[in-house]
């Protein structure tokens, strides 16, 4: 089957899924709430007593147009500041309070860092895992701290996990999908509902067998080797949360390997990264894309560098 044909099939699946309501199409970007930059250069007279009348009801400072609000006071060329800001995602045109940051910029930074930290230190919502009937197994890591400290242990399934996979999973399937929280629970939560059904439907439409899906707690990418050894699938797809950037915790990766086994490295794997809506690889498209890659891996019986050479 050639690529164009495959792409057409996958596209048809996505259309079908959308029509049946199995996946939600990406919501059109909501009209931004009116954003009024604060202009604290002059202080208006304040009521002497706020009493019970105080109402603070703020728009989201992380909205794109809020982020792009210039905060330089008395700029030589205020349109110029806007143009400079538009040329980069770096935090410029932020102005200053003495030599320090203005309050809005300081709190925006802290908000971005906070959402990143929260993504890192919590687990994926159990309800989401239940929704997709994902049972949970664990690596040799026993807690979050150890997960960060011992990447080597996150690459190995614990003994109970191996037993559980042996009991519950269909062996020698064509495609085995596995979910891991990785370094961002938020990434899995943001993308799984869109991506998972596309992959399942795509695999089944292509006439391939779809293995019993499950969740691995405290997984690193290298755990694919143990999974390959335990279940012996043709292709393993690991959906895993990426290390969060500042204010971007929703980015997920799909790591893929053909018949992963002990000793395989990143050179034996393929990855679709930066999976997130609005700016990254859209999760629906990513789902279609990984099905295509899985097909290619089976066709060439290879993944990673070997697959590149085969093409």
């Amino acid at each position: 089957m050639d690529d164009a044909k495959l792409a057409a099939i996958v596209e048809a699946i996505v259309r079908e899924l959308k029509a049946s309501g199995a996946v939600q199409p990406s919501a059109p970007t909501a009209a931004p709430a009116a954003w009024t930059p604060s202009t604290p250069q002059t202080f208006s007279a304040r009521p002497s007593s706020f009493g019970g009348s105080l109402t603070i009801d703020l728009p989201d400072p992380t909205a794109p147009e809020a982020r792009l609000t210039p905060r330089v006071t008395n700029a030589k060329d205020s349109n110029g500041v806007r143009a400079l800001m538009a040329s980069t995602s770096a935090r410029i045109g932020v102005g200053r309070a003495g030599p320090r940051y203005r309050t809005a910029s300081l709190l925006l930074f802290q908000g971005d860092h906070a959402v990143t930290q929260d993504a890192l230190y919590r687990d994926v919502d159990q309800r989401l895992l239940d929704e997709f009937n994902l049972f949970t197994v664990q690596t040799k890591v026993s807690n979050k701290q150890e997960y960060l400290l011992r990447p080597d242990l996150g690459r190995l399934l614990n003994d109970e996990a191996k037993r559980t996979l042996n009991e519950k999973c269909q062996k020698n399937v064509n495609v085995q999908i596995v979910v891991g929280g990785g370094l961002s629970a938020a990434a899995v939560e943001a993308n799984l509902r869109q991506m998972f059904p596309v992959v399942r439907q795509g695999v089944q439409s292509a006439g391939l067998t779809f293995g019993t899906p499950f969740f691995v707690k405290y997984a690193r990418v290298g755990v694919m080797n143990d999974i390959g050894e335990a279940i012996k699938p043709d292709v393993v797809i690991l959906l895993i949360g990426e290390r969060p950037g500042l204010g971007r915790a929703e980015s997920m990766s799909a790591y893929m390997g053909y018949k992963p086994k002990y000793g395989d490295t990143d050179a034996d794997r393929d990855v679709v990264c930066n999976i997130f809506e609005n700016g990254g690889t859209n999760p629906l498209e990513a789902g279609a894309f990984v099905v295509q890659i899985a097909q290619k891996m089976r066709q060439h019986q290879a993944s990673g560098v070997k697959l590149k050479m085969a093409k």
Partner: peptide
Amino acid sequence: VPMGDDSMLSYQCTSFHDAPTLRQ
């Protein structure tokens, strides 16, 4: 780095503002 947030390397460090603050 602009506000200490490196938009390419995805890490945080000291900022344009920190140098004049430390000097002062």
